[in-house]
Simulated assay, not measured.
Amino acid sequence: MPLLVPPAPAPALRSVLAALGSPTAVREARPPALRAAQGPLSPEFPLPFHVLDGIIPSGRPPRTRLTGWRFLIRSGDRTVAAADTVLTADGWAFSHFCEGPYIASSQLAMRQAEAMTARYQPRLLSVPELYMLTLWLHDGPVADAGEPEAMPLPTDLLVPLAPAPPGIASHRPHRAADLLPLLTHRLTPPAVPLLSQPA
């Protein structure tokens, strides 16, 4: 079934189009893949980008926060990079272009998700403590993808993108109820045994 890709905020899309249309509007140099691209560049597949905070046990439940929208950048029939936007005091603004393995991995995960029988709303979920990025398939297709804070439902699927942390298979869907406790366990420091007092 097709994914229910949420519409990006119009100012976020405009900021990416402006960055693509005017190289001088971007402070940093474009990545090599964009510089080498032939023909027009177009943004597609906007995905809300959430960051998972507080996964390390601290007495407070973990939460996600929306930090931006990521657009895949297409040149002809290839995706060559991504463009990230961020929410500023003045609204949505272009942040930076990026390239690397997560671009192809995002595409593969989206294709896998489109072959599933259930309909999901795709999002991206970053776990900074593990240097991990997942495709978050939200089991609530009518939900507002731009919520500032939202937590994955137990029935949501999380698909780790490659490269995934050691011991976690990339491109394998996991129920959020199964994967999130595993990530928390990985980040829990081991208990230090107390040394007995000298006699």
Rank of each mutant, 00 (worst) to 15 (best):
W92V: 00
L179M: 11
A89R: 11
Q107N: 12
V86E: 11
H174C: 09
H171D: 10
G100D: 01
P40H: 00
A118W: 10
T117S: 14
A145L: 02
R70S: 01
A118H: 06
E129W: 08
L4Q: 15
L20F: 02
A118K: 09
R63N: 12
L195S: 11
W92S: 12
P160Y: 00
R175W: 10
A145T: 00
L87A: 05
G39Q: 09
Y131I: 11
S42I: 15
P43E: 11
P173A: 07
V192L: 15
L195W: 12
A29I: 01
T184P: 02
D84Y: 12
R27N: 12
R65M: 01
P101D: 05
A10K: 04
A12L: 01
S196E: 15
C98A: 14
V51M: 03
P163V: 00
L66G: 02
H185Q: 08
T155R: 14
L182S: 09
A113N: 02
H138W: 02
V159F: 13
P181T: 03
A191K: 14
L34M: 09
A115L: 13
W92T: 02
E99V: 06
R172E: 15
A169R: 10
A25C: 08
P2H: 07
R175S: 12
E99Y: 03
A164K: 03
L13D: 01
P148T: 05
P154L: 01
P148S: 13
L87C: 06
L158I: 00
A113K: 08
A118P: 03
A82K: 00
P101V: 01
